[in-house]
């Protein structure tokens, strides 16, 4: 095609005013050129459509079920953590599956050592355990129970109960308002403050927990990264970057290298959560 480049520029809008004017005049008097332009327009349109289909197919692969709110204040993660801790600690303490409390147990208002340790926090939100408890207690005990929270000896070290993720994954469409449903509502909107530092050549792919923040050392510009925080029998933090998971020791403040996780079962479990 003799006019290939010219037609290409015309369709792409890359001719200057003068060139465009000349081409349009030529177009008016040249039926062959008109055919060529019409044909090329169809082809270019087809190429664009192919690209649009490709982008849309790519977007369709993006998991959106657990759409997240970004840019939340760090406080929200604390709220989420406290809420889960409160719910699970409350469940453990009140044990709604048991019918009575010891008859002579003296109930005292505990003095929480810190905000995080105080299981009475957010009881207004995490109402499931007390409500169930109210049903099972005798009236007198019930009244006393409602006025106070949890004995200090048990409250200081609440054992965060574990919510089995497999059950959640397998029963994601369970309609009942279970305690895990409430917990999920809190935890999905959580956030950890993260900084990246690519200027330190001594640490090409390392991390550090410092002053409540996670610092990632190395070049993290080439891909998205995600932080997965885990509360089960123990607390754990994971980094997902470049298709790999890395375990992060959040109790240590020293700079440590990022080591990729190779345990297939753990990877599978983390993948299930990420894809939700």
């Amino acid at each position: 095609m003799e006019n290939f480049e010219l037609i290409d520029k015309f369709i792409g809008g890359h001719l200057n005013d003068l060139e465009k004017q000349e081409f349009e005049q030529q177009l008016l008097s040249d039926p062959v050129l008109q055919n060529d332009v019409a044909f090329q327009k169809q082809i270019v349109e087809g190429i664009k459509k192919a690209r649009i289909s490709e982008i849309k197919a790519m977007l369709n692969q993006v998991p959106v079920g657990g759409a997240v709110q970004l840019g939340l204040a760090t406080g929200k993660i604390i709220t989420g953590i406290i809420a889960v801790g409160t719910i699970t600690a409350s469940l453990l303490y009140f044990k709604p599956w048991e019918t009575t409390l010891p008859p002579n147990e003296k109930l005292e208002i505990p003095k929480a050592k810190s905000k995080k340790e105080d299981p009475s926090l957010n009881l207004g939100k995490a109402i499931i355990a007390p409500k169930e408890n109210k049903i099972t207690l005798t009236p007198i005990e019930s009244k006393a129970k409602k006025e106070v929270s949890i004995p200090k000896s048990r409250a200081v070290q609440p054992k965060i109960e574990v919510i089995d993720p497999t059950e959640e994954i397998n029963n994601s469409d369970v309609k009942a308002k279970s305690h895990s449903d409430n917990a999920r509502a809190h935890v999905e909107a959580s956030h950890i403050a993260v900084e990246t530092n690519s200027s330190n050549s001594k640490y090409p792919f390392h991390y550090q927990f410092k002053e409540g923040k996670l610092i990632l050392y190395g070049n993290f510009d080439k891909d998205l990264y995600e932080i997965l925080e885990v509360h089960g029998d123990s607390h754990a933090v994971f980094l997902f970057f470049g298709g790999n998971y890395y375990s992060l020791k959040d109790k240590q403040s020293t700079i440590l290298p990022l080591i990729v996780i190779s345990d297939p079962q753990l990877i599978k479990k983390l993948n299930e959560y990420r894809s939700r």
Binding site: V68, I81, V162, I163, P165, V194, L224, L228, G232, Y273
Partner: peptide, 13 residues
């Protein structure tokens, strides 16, 4: 290990 994952997105602004 039973897990509770806090899912967090990209930290990019």
């Amino acid at each position: 290990m039973a897990l509770r994952v806090f899912k967090i997105g990209s930290q990019w602004d």
